[in-house]
């Protein structure tokens, strides 16, 4: 039996509060991890550890941070993700909302793409969600 959306959100929220030192009410589904919650690169490792423990899942590095795509010359031209690159990103991260990023897919902006809601969707894809 999977977890409900609310159960997933609560556990993700708890992980982010602990990892980033933010308040509960700052962690809403629309908040971006980097821009709104101030996550730095090292925090993502911490978040991965906390989510793995909290949900008893295994998170591969490339699932949340597709650096191999973003540094691949076949997928990036002049600092912008190509159409092929976008297709690869969507295939790799079907749980992420890329509609805004896709309008101007500069690699430098990718780091601020993920929202709390995306993270919940990702976890839901790993543990199964009832919703």
């Amino acid at each position: 039996m999977g977890l409900s959306q609310d159960e997933i959100f609560e556990k993700v929220q708890e992980a982010l509060v602990e990892a980033l030192g933010v308040d509960d009410d700052e962690v809403n589904r629309e908040a971006t991890l980097v821009g709104d919650l101030g996550a730095e690169s090292i925090d993502f490792l911490d978040i991965v550890f906390k989510l793995e423990k909290s949900f008893d899942i295994n998170i591969e590095r490339t699932e949340l941070a597709p650096e191999d795509i973003l540094t691949n010359g076949d997928y990036v031209k002049d600092g912008v993700v190509t159409a092929e690159g976008m297709a690869e990103l969507k295939r790799r991260m079907p749980w992420a909302n890329m509609s805004e990023f896709e309008q101007n897919p500069r690699v430098q902006d990718f780091g601020n793409l993920l929202t709390v809601g995306d993270l919940c969707s990702y976890v839901g894809s790993k543990v199964g969600s009832d919703a």
Binding site: L45, V48, F49, E52, K53, R61
Partner: peptide, 10 residues
């Protein structure tokens, strides 16, 4: 030792 990944540990 709490958890180990290929990029870090807790």
């Amino acid at each position: 030792l709490d958890a180990v990944q290929d990029t870090g540990a807790t």
